[in-house]
């Protein structure tokens, strides 16, 4: 009985310490932020209930977008090598093959209308400021035209499998122009020095961010970087919830590749130790019977 009392005192003391230095201290250092919003309903320039016309979208995209963007899925190759594209625009413009799948519809429409406000980069590109965003705003287009483009991009986007290969494709399309993933041998399409000039900071290699930031943080950060790092140069990328999950899954597959093995081995080892402890208890009982 006495030993249980001692154990109870220990458990309480250690429990209080643990609570204080882990969950509590972290909640003080990293306060909760607004929940992720995958409707992007702060963006209201384009009425997304308008029904788009893909055929007209195709014409508009070919006239306006492929000067800068590759769309390999439909045969529009990139016009110049990555480094030259980066030199021309600051950053290598992403291939749009997957744009219709990975970007939220409302975000995409409003992004085409006015990139800077959709990306939440007004602090970097103020109206009338010295710097201008490399991609022009298509606010001169009619809402119908913009929705035509969106529908066209959605119609060409290929489906990908829900596996590591598919996740990698989503990651490359969404983040690959800025971020490398060294442990996945994936290099940013924009050269590092160009990125530094364009962004002001070098975007970090994301190989270990699943561990250093954790899923919870990434969930909020990718959806809206400004809520976690005020004034950051990283744009709000505008992914759908599904695409964001694929990106995070990829970060985990690369950054914590042994997770599954860890969890199975863990159960076996703990099971083994439970049996060990039970046998040890029986042995102890048998031996101590003789001395008590």
């Amino acid at each position: 009985m006495k030993e249980f009392k001692i154990l109870a005192v220990l458990v309480v003391l250690v429990g209080v310490l643990y609570y204080g230095i882990e969950p509590y201290a972290h909640s003080v250092m990293h306060p909760e932020v607004a929940p992720a919003n995958f409707n992007f309903d702060d963006l209201k320039n384009v009425d997304t209930s308008i029904k788009g016309n893909g055929a007209n979208g195709k014409v508009l995209v070919e006239a306006n977008c492929i000067a800068c963007h590759a769309i390999e899925k439909v045969g529009h190759l990139q016009l110049m090598p990555n480094a030259d594209a980066a030199a021309a625009y600051g950053v290598t413009p992403p291939d749009l093959s997957h744009a219709g799948r990975i970007y939220d519809k409302n975000f995409l429409a409003n992004f085409i209308f006015d990139p800077v406000s959709a990306l939440h980069l007004e602090h970097k590109y103020p109206v009338g400021g010295a710097k201008t965003f490399p991609m022009p705003a298509y606010n001169w287009m009619s809402q119908q035209d913009i929705m035509d483009i969106v529908v066209y991009l959605q119609s060409i986007a290929p489906k990908v499998l829900d596996d590591k290969v598919g996740h990698a494709i989503t990651f490359k399309a969404a983040c690959g122009r800025c971020h490398s993933m060294k442990y996945g041998t994936l290099e940013a399409t924009t050269p590092a020095d160009a990125l530094k000039t364009y962004m002001g900071v070098t975007p970090p290699d994301l190989s270990q961010h699943i561990k250093s930031r954790g899923e919870h943080y990434l969930h909020s950060f990718i959806n809206n970087p400004q809520v976690l790092i005020k004034g950051t140069a990283m744009p709000r990328v505008g992914l759908t919830e599904k695409a964001q999950e694929e990106v995070i899954a990829y970060m985990e597959e690369i950054g914590d590749s042994k997770k599954e093995e860890r969890e199975t081995v863990g159960l076996w080892v703990m099971g083994y130790m439970v049996v060990f402890a039970l046998l040890a208890y029986l042995w102890k009982r048998q031996i101590w019977k003789k001395v008590h």
Binding site: V274, F276, A277, L278
Partner: peptide
């Protein structure tokens, strides 16, 4: 014999 039992319980927690 007692220590090994305590060790066993501790190792469950540790692992």
């Amino acid at each position: 014999s007692k220590d090994i039992f305590v060790l066993g319980v501790f190792l469950v927690f540790f692992f």
